[in-house]
């Protein structure tokens, strides 16, 4: 067995090659971000910076700061509320089956996959009609269209718990809210982390809802970055620094909580 292991060391070659491929864009973002304005030239794009200059980040931050805060203020409540709804729905669908629960579930699931282009016109019209516009409307869209995936994740988790856990509590006289509050909620923390991360990431990274539901005073970061990059006025080095600012919150979540991120990812393909 040991000989086999050594014989496999050549595998590091393709692995490192692939690692380089995945890191190339990050390399460009990082080195460009730290170059001074004087060093910026597309022809020396791959060269290391001569020192550490923060010009690009300062410039990008001054342009993007408002939209970064727009994103935070919209994404955090949206992630918390849709996770909580998902936990409640998952609990009811998994453990307190009412008539038709199994019938409803696939219809909720389908909502996870629909192309949002097929509901976009009614969504915009509806939000305008009820007067929920800007960031509040965007947060609401993320909460509602997040219900399918959050419900799925929690339902699968609660369904995996032994039924005896609930039966015992019922015999002790606990009602359903009591069971949820005192038995399931405390052990749901890992699932909450998975779902919160998932919702945070997808709402933070969303572009389609943001571009149709918000105007230029309440653009979240994706729309602001795309507009900054698309206009051709802001030079590419500032765009690179802006990209890092836009990616940093979800990247940090990934770096520190990657394990939970992966579980959300697998749940998203119904494989959780």
């Amino acid at each position: 067995m040991k000989g086999l292991r050594i014989g496999k060391n050549w595998l590091y070659l393709p692995l490192i090659g692939m690692a380089v491929f995945y890191l190339l864009p990050m390399y460009v973002i990082l080195v460009t971000g730290f170059k001074s304005f004087g060093e910026i030239d597309l022809k020396t794009m791959w060269n290391l910076p001569r020192g550490i200059a923060l010009d690009n980040y300062i410039e990008a931050y001054s342009k993007l700061a408002p939209s970064l805060w727009n994103s935070f203020s919209m994404v955090i409540p949206a992630a918390i509320i849709s996770s909580f709804l998902g936990s409640l729905n998952g609990f009811i669908l998994a453990k307190w089956k009412f008539r038709g629960a199994d019938f409803i579930f696939p219809f909720i699931l389908f909502g996870m996959f629909i192309p949002y282009q097929s509901i976009l016109i009614p969504l915009v019209q509806f939000m305008k009609a009820v007067g929920i516009t800007g960031l509040a409307g965007l947060a609401m869209a993320h909460i509602i269209y997040g219900i399918p995936i959050t419900t799925l994740t929690f339902r699968n988790y609660y369904a995996s718990l032994p039924q005896e856990l609930l039966e015992a509590a019922k015999i002790d006289g606990a009602d359903m809210l009591g069971i949820y509050r005192y038995i399931l909620l405390p052990i749901s923390l890992p699932s909450f982390v998975v779902v919160l991360i998932w919702q945070f990431t997808s709402a933070w990274n969303d572009f389609l809802f943001a571009v149709v539901l918000t105007g230029n005073t309440d653009w979240p970061i994706t729309v602001a970055l795309n507009n900054m990059a698309g206009r051709g006025i802001i030079s590419w080095n500032v765009q690179m620094a802006g990209s890092l600012l836009a990616a940093l919150p979800t990247l940090l979540v990934y770096i520190f909580l990657g394990r939970y991120f992966l579980r959300g990812l697998l749940a998203g393909s119904l494989k959780g």
Partner: peptide, 14 residues
């Protein structure tokens, strides 16, 4: 896996 955490917009810009 880390590119999964980034938005298509950031990927596109870079």
């Amino acid at each position: 896996l880390f590119p999964m955490a980034i938005s298509y917009i950031v990927t596109g810009v870079v």
